[in-house]
């Protein structure tokens, strides 16, 4: 005999930790890790539910969740790397959503400098 309350409480605490991490962390990769914690908590609840009802539906859903998590991490990390390549930083607080990437600005500077030189000469 087992008490399903033990894994359920574990899952609840993991979910709470994940939620805390998502809100607390600035680093994008750390946020993704916290999301993984929350997904795992949900999986644990699904599997425990299976054990209680002696079925496998929950495990099927857990598998689906794992697969979706893999897809999510793939796309999420592609985004993070893209962000890092543009800004050399993956701090989620510093992502301004409206401006152009910083890499575009230096292209304009030599032209301006050249123009001012021309005026002086």
């Amino acid at each position: 005999m087992i008490r399903p309350v033990i894994p359920l409480v574990t899952a609840a605490l993991l979910f709470g930790l994940g939620a805390y991490g998502v809100l607390r962390r600035r680093n994008a990769v750390l946020v993704l890790m916290s999301v993984e914690l929350m997904l795992n908590a949900v999986n644990l609840i699904l599997v425990t539910g299976d054990t209680m009802r002696e079925r496998v539906t929950g495990q099927v859903f857990a598998l689906f969740v794992i697969v979706i998590a893999a897809a999510e991490v793939g796309v999420g990390l592609a985004l993070v790397l893209r962000l890092f390549r543009l800004r050399q930083d993956i701090n989620t607080d510093q992502v301004a959503l409206d401006d152009e990437p910083r890499a575009a600005t230096p292209a304009g500077e030599p032209a301006l400098a050249g123009a001012s030189d021309g005026e002086q000469a």
């Binding site: 087992i2 359920l8 609840a12 993991l14 979910f15 709470g16 939620a19 991490g21 607390r24 054990t51």
Partner: peptide, 26 residues
């Protein structure tokens, strides 16, 4: 973050303990 995390985690835990506290399965 602490507020939300603690509310979610401890609240869910309390809920589970309340509902399944003495529940046993084979």
């Amino acid at each position: 973050a602490v507020l939300v995390g603690a509310a979610a985690g401890l609240g869910l835990a309390a809920l589970f303990v309340g509902v399944f506290g003495q529940f046993q399965v084979p």
